[in-house]
Write a protein that binds this DNA or RNA. Structure first.
Length: 581
RNA sequence: GACUUGGUAGCUCAGCUGGUAGAGCAACGCCCUUUUAAGGCGUGGGUCCUGGGUUCGAGCCCCAGCCAAGUCACCA
């Protein structure tokens, strides 16, 4: 293991604390009686409240001035300045709790608990006057130090912000510690799902759970992750959607079911795509897609109000207003609106021609539905900023949706588009088992044409439909995408605690035992580290005479006076792998 | 998957036509009892992402890789 100077110093501090009889990782509970947020909100100098306060948290900054110090403590709710005076926390002769423990052995990042009373400093900052201090956890890795200052114009300025996305995502815990606004984003995300859950529960719908491991994947057009069950000796897939299972439950007699589900799609990653993502799907019996549009409007308006207290949400440059009613377009109207071309009567050949004319890349695997979808996705979707319903999709691209009651070429489907992206997808569910079988078979044809996202035929699902599924409206909302909009985040990674990343490259360093096994005296290991010998292979490749010289030189440079130099024979034995006699 | 940009101290970043690596914060030592990006004086700290190449000499130039971000493609 390779440690920076600061990490070594912190490890030494941990040892020192133990020697002083202070457990750096105590097991007893430490009971707090308030939070930093409460103190800052409710402290009133005139009332003289908060006289007997206990809080705990991380030390986030320290300003030591001889026998008195200021520090900031960060708990789950925020930060509070604390003031410590040597003679107050060390009333007796022994001043080591302040002089040694606080000043020397504690660092930024350590958890402490403090008792005291709240007061205002001369500069007017609400602070805690500490009368006793308890070490709760010693931190061994230094945190990035982010500082804030307010200039004369009252503008907040952040210094040395921890901004590198790679580090922020890989070490989200650090991100959460030093970037308080990150916490807010995730709190909002949970509020969002809570708000939806509350809305749906109030309507009497049942939250359910359905399988993630599925023998057949279905319900969407996507490539799956494949896995394997040993005992069953069979391939299983991680679900790409939960539609088909939820509809089975409608067959089974539930009137309304919904599930917040992690789905998995084996596709590329981008700022809008993570291999695992969250959707809510909702199915309600005896309803249709028009009814479902009303529900979506109402539910998302409520979400915006619950999160922001208003229907207006700032997203990048735009202010998006979720106030009902939303604009509605049929897909053909939308395309005509944005391109001036009426494609409603076109066949596949004409559509391909139109797509080419609009400079949209096409290929032979694309059927009629796909072509229309491409035109829409290219020319319309990005222009739809305010929440807009797009209705009545071509039948080819919606194999699970019911045929339109008036236009047989279309299905009863809508998507809500917002900020140029789809945020939900819904339809009157297809419940004619014969038609459903035909649609699956058409999908198989597309599959043969080379569309590797075409759906597979699910016999059990068809069997369920044959028992009869009532007319049903179904809905799916991408929770991550919606969270991005509701928290003004520009990438999906910002609304996922732990976005998928390539694994960190790991260099396997030799352990101390490996060196000892190779015949190296333990006290010489740091010298080898310093010389860049980090693995036994590396050691074996060194030239013994040069290594001997280097080790002796480095020992001197590191001022390891008490460490004896190795002999040349000793060094040779390391390199050759023979223990010295 | 393609293109563009980036990877230098614990963190944020400099680093000139190629000449043996710098600042601020953090750390360490000393001073300091209401400070607040606290301050003052001093000290240490680097596999310049990795591996090759060019060169007397590479953080810098060339090639190949790894990782990330942004744009595009597929999708939600």
């Amino acid at each position: 293991m390779f440690l920076s100077e600061q990490e070594i110093i912190r490890r030494q501090a941990r040892e020192e604390l133990m020697k002083l009889g202070i457990e750096p990782y105590p097991s007893a509970l430490f009971e707090v009686n308030t939070t930093t947020e409460e103190i800052k909100r409710d402290f009133d100098e005139a009332k003289g409240n908060f006289k007997d306060v206990v809080i705990a948290g991380r030390i986030m900054s320290r300003r030591i001035m001889g026998s008195a110090s200021f520090a900031e403590i960060q708990d789950a709710s925020g930060r509070l300045q604390v003031y410590l005076r040597r003679d107050d926390i060390c009333p007796g002769e022994d001043k080591s709790l302040y002089n040694t423990v606080f000043k020397k052995l504690l660092d930024i990042g350590d958890f402490i608990g403090v008792k005291g009373y709240v007061f205002k400093t001369q500069t007017g900052e609400i602070s805690l006057y500490v009368t006793s201090l308890t070490v709760l956890t010693k931190s061994l890795k230094p945190l990035p130090i982010v500082k804030e200052a307010v200039d004369e114009r009252g503008e907040k300025k952040t210094y040395d912000a921890f901004t590198d996305p790679e580090q922020r995502y890989r070490q989200r815990y650090v991100d959460l510690i030093v970037n308080p606004q990150v916490k807010d984003t995730f709190i909002k995300r949970t509020q969002l799902t809570n708000s939806m859950r509350q809305y749906l529960n109030n309507k009497g719908y049942l939250e359910v759970e359905t399988p993630i491991l599925q023998p057949l994947y279905g319900g969407a057009a996507a490539r799956p992750f494949k896995t394997y069950h040993n005992t069953l000796d069979m391939t299983l897939y991680l679900r790409i959607a939960n539609e088909l299972y939820l509809k089975r439950l409608i067959v089974g007699g539930f009137d309304g079911v919904y599930e917040f589900s992690k789905d998995f799609r084996n596709e590329g990653m981008s700022r809008f795509h993570n291999p695992e993502f969250t959707q809510i799907e909702l199915y309600v019996a005896y309803k249709d897609y028009k009814w479902m549009m009303e529900l979506v409007e109402e539910m998302l308006e409520k979400v915006a109000l619950d999160l922001h207290g208003t229907t207006k949400v700032q997203v990048g440059e735009n202010v998006i207003d979720f106030k009902r009613p939303w604009k509605r377009f049929t897909m053909f109207e939308a395309i005509e609106h944005f391109t001036g071309i009426d494609i409603s009567q076109m066949d596949e050949v004409q559509l391909r021609g139109t797509a080419e004319q609009l400079e949209i890349p096409v290929d032979d695997t694309m059927g009629k539905g796909k072509l229309i979808d491409e035109i829409f996705g290219e020319k319309c979707e990005p222009n739809l900023i305010q929440p807009t319903f797009i209705t009545d999709y071509p039948v080819e691209m919606s194999p699970l949706a019911k045929r339109h009651r008036d236009k047989p070429e279309l299905v009863e489907r809508f998507e809500a588009i917002c900020n140029g992206k789809e945020i939900c997808n819904a339809f009157s569910e297809l419940n004619d088992p014969i038609d459903q079988r035909k649609r699956f078979e058409e999908q198989l044809e597309l599959g043969k044409r080379g569309d590797d996202e075409a759906m597979v035929l699910d016999e059990d699902f068809l069997r369920a439909l044959e028992y009869g599924m009532p007319p049903t409206a179904g809905l799916g909302i991408g929770i991550d995408r919606l969270s991005m909009i509701m928290t003004n985040s520009s990438s999906i990674q910002d609304v996922l605690f732990f976005p998928q990343m390539k694994p960190e490259k790991k260099v396997v360093y030799a352990s101390n035992q490996d060196y000892v096994d190779a015949g190296v005296r333990e006290e010489l290991i740091p010298v080898l580290h310093k010389l860049g010998v980090l693995t036994i292979e590396e050691l074996r490749q060194r030239e013994p005479n040069k290594l001997f010289n280097d080790v002796c030189g480095m020992r001197k440079k590191l001022k390891l006076k008490e460490v004896k130099n190795p002999t040349l024979d000793e060094v040779s034995s390391w390199v050759e792998g023979q223990p010295a006699e």
